[in-house]
Design a binder for these strands. Sequence first.
DNA 1: GTCGCGACGTTCGCGTTCTGTAAGATCCGG
DNA 2: CCGGATCTTACAGAACGCGAACGTCGCGAC
Lengths: 226, 226
Amino acid sequence: MVDDDPTVSDVVRRYLEQDGCRVRLAADGLAALAAVDAEVPDLVVLDLMLGGVNGLDVCRRLRADQPGLPVVMLTALGEESDRVLGLEMGADDYVTKPFSPRELVLRVRSVLRRTAPAAPPRPALLRDGELVADTGRRTAELDGRPLALTVREFDLLEFLMRHPARAFSRAELLDRVWGWQFGDQSTVTVHVRRLREKIEPDPAAPRRLLTVWGVGYRYEPCATSS
Amino acid sequence: MVDDDPTVSDVVRRYLEQDGCRVRLAADGLAALAAVDAEVPDLVVLDLMLGGVNGLDVCRRLRADQPGLPVVMLTALGEESDRVLGLEMGADDYVTKPFSPRELVLRVRSVLRRTAPAAPPRPALLRDGELVADTGRRTAELDGRPLALTVREFDLLEFLMRHPARAFSRAELLDRVWGWQFGDQSTVTVHVRRLREKIEPDPAAPRRLLTVWGVGYRYEPCATSS
DNA sequence: GTCGCGACGTTCGCGTTCTGTAAGATCCGG
DNA sequence: CCGGATCTTACAGAACGCGAACGTCGCGAC
């Protein structure tokens, strides 16, 4: 919990602890970074307005040092632009002051539930017929021949193979693969196309990476075709 | 909104509607379950103390019928044990009486914001004899042969199959499938016709997607069960 | 420091598909 | 038999997906 106002920190701490959390307090950005370095927490509640210092910088540093560490932002600024800025920065959620401590607890719980199961992305061997993706080594091969996938392409393939036979909208893919809450959806289109070029024998007539018209895309396992 | 006290219900309804919610009232547990069955809401506000009846039972039934349906509990008991009980029961939040309507609205909004992104994609396999609709992959098949349904057609079919044996007016379908509060009702007519062309062996003599003269349409399950 | 390369996000044009509306034909209830 | 509701067909505009090309950024080589 990073906040320079002891009154706020104390209340929040009490509520969080009552909810079963272990809480560490930090009064400023440097202390926060040091604390995180000393013991990586499950989640950080970060006040954007740290007396003079820009909380966004702290957030950026946190994201750089500990990618994947959930951050819930706390801000007096309820403006849309700040929200966008915060989410761009990688915050998983945000609460605007004045807030009810209960609400903060709910958000924290929600984010934890959301990220906890996804946090340990255990290396797995995703196999679908002749297409095999090794998330540990971040390599993939088709018909035994290695595929030269880029980062995004691999992430996209991994996500789709982990959720087979489900249609996802471009927005949803943008959110869950790119981590964006907004953005140009054609980005997804283009990456799907590039990925098809590599995993589909005939990219114009895809057998695995299917288009769902008016919705988005879906990965259909090739092996167990019903 | 489930509460046996009209005074409370009315106030809460006004506040929620002012916040942009569409509200349905139910005075007791049975009415609540019936209402949810008739039209699955985005969220239920449930008073635990329903004159004599235990609201927890209602909650349990709700959870069984509609897993994932958010429930905000309303209770005069502020005891920790009850809170724990409520949350164990699956409530997403709870508010203790006496409460400020504003606080309830905030809680509702918060829970909706939290669950909304996860709620819509609730994959289900809707089956009726030889007609199967998979809402997860957004595909449907008849006699094992895939159907080429468009977005609207699928949405319409999904909605009707989720509410079988119930007549809906064109206006209601326009509202709940298209999301329009007004508009040309012939739109529904045409889409029903197009859908019939695909799911009915003889579109002129429909067996599932029936016309209810002077009212609208109704989906009649083909399988002679239930 | 500069150059070249690959990855990535964006933009544009084109062909296809979907969709709402209109208009005439048909059917149903009284 | 009539009036209104429903069905059927046709069509044009809009939406959509695709393919290609472009600009930017970061990185490594020289």
